[in-house]
């Protein structure tokens, strides 16, 4: 497997993290996302016409979109079925719902991070406010899960929904978004960083 990767991308980190949890070997192809904007180059657009990272190549199959890659890896490489439980229709739908939610976190928290860190020109006030709206929902959901004795987004064990929501929630501080407002999120981040084979990226404090 070959992962087109950028070291500071939370979306690429979703894949690196899941690969680590599944203990999979893969080849990383570094892309100069910043400052080189290599993801918008002709050669990269030939791989992904959307000009976005990450992209996974596996035996001739080319998949773009972090959530789609998580789904692919879970189906293809997780014989336990733990990471994408499919027996229970409601839980199956929950996972899909939170995968979509993860994309909204990218649209807000990751945008704030690109603004503060890499100088992207965008509405930072709207990006941060949008992220806070989502984190309130996530904090409330995780609290409810805890009331029911569950520690993860979609049920009693971690799924790809947790992995999809994790990076840009844990990296929110990079974009000037305080996550100490959300204790249930803090506990969830802490639990996730304590899973066996957890793999970190800069900007996430594994000790907090």
């Amino acid at each position: 497997m070959k992962l087109y990767d950028y070291v500071l991308s939370g979306n690429c980190y979703k894949i690196r993290l899941f690969m680590a949890f599944l203990d999979l070997d893969y080849e990383k192809v570094g892309v100069d996302f910043y400052p080189g904007r290599e993801h918008k180059s002709d050669s990269f657009l030939a791989i992904n016409p959307l000009g976005q990272l990450p992209v996974l190549e596996d035996n001739g199959v080319v998949i773009r979109d972090a959530q789609a890659i998580l789904v692919y890896l879970a189906n293809r490489h997780d014989p336990s079925g733990q990471w994408w439980p499919q027996a229970d229709h409601a839980q199956f739908a929950q996972v899909v719902q939170w995968l979509a939610f993860a994309d909204s976190i990218t649209g807000t928290s990751s945008a704030a991070r690109l603004h503060d860190m890499l100088g992207y020109d965008l509405d930072i006030v709207a990006a941060r406010a949008g992220a806070h709206r989502l984190f309130r929902i996530l904090d409330s959901h995780l609290s409810q899960q805890e009331f029911e004795g569950h520690h993860w987004i979609a049920g009693p064990s971690p799924t790809i929904a947790d992995i999809a929501c994790f990076p840009y929630t844990a990296l929110a501080g990079d974009g000037g978004i305080d996550t100490f407002y959300y204790p249930a999120i803090q506990r969830w981040i802490h639990r996730l960083t304590r899973l066996p084979r957890y793999h970190n990226m800069p900007g996430i404090n594994v000790f907090a």
Binding site: V7, L8, G30, G173, D174, P202, G203, N205
Partner: peptide
């Protein structure tokens, strides 16, 4: 990537 990884660790 090496440089940026190191610098982002410092940034936090």
């Amino acid at each position: 990537h090496f440089q940026q990884n190191i610098f982002l660790q410092d940034r936090m």
